[in-house]
């Protein structure tokens, strides 16, 4: 058998494995970034609300 037979299948396995992994990692990182921004905004709102009236 030619050792390079089925090289296309191996390439597909390699691409799908890494593409799937990095796509998921990208989505998780983006979600975390959005949540961190949301937490900062919510904390600011909470601080504003809990600040006594009349204080600058």
């Amino acid at each position: 058998m030619n050792p390079n037979t089925n090289l296309g299948y191996l390439f597909a396995i390699y691409i799908i494995t890494w593409a799937g992994f990095f796509a998921y990692m990208f989505l998780v990182s983006r979600r975390q970034r959005d949540l961190e921004r949301e937490i900062r905004q919510l904390r600011q709102l909470v601080e504003q609300k809990t600040k006594p009236a009349g204080n600058p």
Partner: peptide, 20 residues
């Protein structure tokens, strides 16, 4: 690495819910 990142997302979601 991905598991830890996903865990952090879940923890942040809980924090957002608490603040809300």
């Amino acid at each position: 690495y991905v598991l830890v990142e996903r865990f952090r997302v879940r923890r942040s979601e809980a924090e957002v819910a608490e603040l809300s």
